[in-house]
Every structure is written in C-alpha cells, then in structure tokens.
Nucleic acid binder design. Structure first.
Lengths: 156, 156
DNA sequence: TTTCATGTAACTTATGATGTTTCATAATGT
DNA sequence: ACATTATGAAACATCATAAGTTACATGAAA
C-alpha cells in the first residue's frame, strides 16, 4: 500500500549487447556479402527482429548500412579502424554504465545531498575513465590476427 | 523457439540502496534510541520487511545491531568514522557495479575472446578506481555540518 | 501475559527488455 | 508482372527477479 519509490527505479539487464555487437561487426568485416538479420540472429542465438532493433541504432549513427530485398542485409559502412568501442557503446544508447543509482526522495535533506554528491563524484570519475579507455580502442585492433577465422561454422 | 542466451542475463535494477542506506545510517547516528524497521521504512517510503532484509546484510558485517521487542530496533554498532562507502557497498552485496556484461556463447572464438578481453580490461580498471574512491570516504565526513538536522519531519 | 519488535518463509506484483507474430515496404531475379 | 527475399515497424506475449506483501514464529520489555 506504500507509494513505491523503489518502483521508480530503472530496470536494466546485464547488457552484453556491446560485446555481442563488436563480435558481429568484426565478423561482418570478413564477409564479402551483406549479413542478413537471420544469419546474425543465428550467430547470436537470438531473434532476427531483435537484431534489426539493435542494428538500427548502429545504422542511425552511420556504422552499418541495411539493404532490403534479394541479396540484402547488413554491411559495414566504414572500416573497423574508424570505429571505437565508445562509438558502439554510445550507439547502443545505454543510459548509465552503472548499476548504482542515487536516491531522489528527499532532495532538500542535506544528508541525502551530501551522500549523493559523494557517490556521484565517484561515479562521474569512474565513468570518465571508462569512456576514455573505450575511445582508445578501435575495432581493427581486436580483429588483428584473426582475419582467417571462419564465419559460417557453428562455433561462431 | 530459440534457445535464449539473452535470457541468461542477470536482471538488475538501478540500485539506490547504497545511497538510501548511507542516508539512513547517518540519521541513525543522530538518534538516541534504536530505529525500528517501520520507522526506517517510512523514511524510505518502502516496506519494513524490505528494510529488515537490507539491514540484515549490514548487521552481518557488524555495522549495525538489531534488538527485538519493546524499545528494540536498529542501531549503529560502530562510529560513522569507522564505516566507508566501500564497506556499505560491499555489505549490500552488489555483484557488479556495471550494467555492461560480456558475451559467453562462443568462448573458443578468438574474436569473442579479444572483444571480451578489451572490454574486461576497461571494466576492471574503472571498477578499481571506483572502489578505491569509495574506500576513501567515511560516513562521518558526509554528516559534518548537519548534526542538528531534525529526523522526524516528513522531509526525511 | 500483553505488546512490540525482529526473523523468516512463502507468495504476489511490477517491470521492461527480449522474444514473437504479423504485415507493410522495397529490391532483386525470373 | 510476379514471386522471392529482405528490412521496417507495430503489436503483443514471455520471462526473470527485485520489491512488495502477508503471515506467523521468536524473543524482549512493560
């Protein structure tokens, strides 16, 4: 019967989309033809519609293109060397990288203010470091040495 | 009909327990008497049972004590100056501070390995920084200057 | 022995991304 | 033209789980 403030929390899952999409993009780089949503979905053991939803975000930022109809599918729009972890992280639209949140119930209570300020300072610093590191890594670096790894096998 | 691997993700909410519990602990420091679960629950606009569940973790680590019966409730077991943000963070038992996770489907694929290694390196470094900062802040610092803020008003 | 409080088990609810179905749209091949 | 293959997008169903709730046992104080 309580007015739930806990219920206002953002629901989020441990999100492996970054890892998965990087994986897919690098494999795509080794293909000559576009990869269909269906093909990518089977790589990721998920659903083609989910793939389209996720890839749409990358397309909107210009990292991949989509083509309809026969012979269509998804292709890289730019070399892997032009894409950083940060680019894909941002394109996936994560609201926050942290599971830790702040209380916002008693915004006039000086204790809550002090507590939130202390936590927030730390989160901001840690996130800045994380994003900086993500910006330093381009996808071509991750692909080095694996240019010949086969795409169409079950393992992928 | 796909074997869902996405479904294996950990579900987690944006967790404001750290912020809330710090807030509560500092207020408790200003009380002469134990705070009941009911009282704390009304502070946090939540349920007494939820409070007990959460406080139980802090009690197990020795930061608070609980007393049953008349005049019972929750009290600090140690001065605020002995408790750090890291202590409470750990006591709340968060599995990971990040919403970002790794793919673990194709553990023999060298691309997945390289991708996960890159992400993991960054997460580990950022988390280490965060925990280090949390360890530097004791709760008495957050309470400074607010010793006289009233507890029983609606605002808290 | 009544009251008040925590302790705990069992159950219900709320949430929202993922998963799914369906149809529209568009491009290619025959 | 028409069938086939692909994305686009809307609408709905599923699923996992923390939070919320109920109920009762346990223990301490008045």
């Amino acid at each position: 019967m309580h007015a739930s403030l806990f219920a206002m929390r953002l629901l989020m899952r441990k999100d492996s989309r970054l890892s998965r999409m990087l994986h897919v993009l690098i494999h795509m780089d080794q293909l000559n033809a576009p990869a269909t949503s269906e093909k990518i979905a089977s790589m990721l053991n998920t659903n083609p519609v989910v793939v389209r939803r996720t890839m749409a975000g990358l397309r909107d930022k210009g990292y991949v293109t989509s083509v309809k109809g026969h012979g269509g599918g998804w292709s890289l729009a730019t070399p892997l060397s032009n894409i950083t972890l940060l680019d894909i992280h941002n394109a996936l639209g994560e609201s926050s990288v942290f599971t830790i949140g702040l209380s916002d119930e008693h915004t006039s209570c000086p204790i809550e203010i002090a507590v939130n300020q202390a936590i927030s300072d730390v989160l901001i610093e840690a996130e800045a470091l994380l994003l900086e590191r993500f910006r330093d890594v381009t996808l071509d670096v991750l692909a080095v040495g694996f240019a010949d790894y086969p795409l169409n096998q079950k393992e992928i």
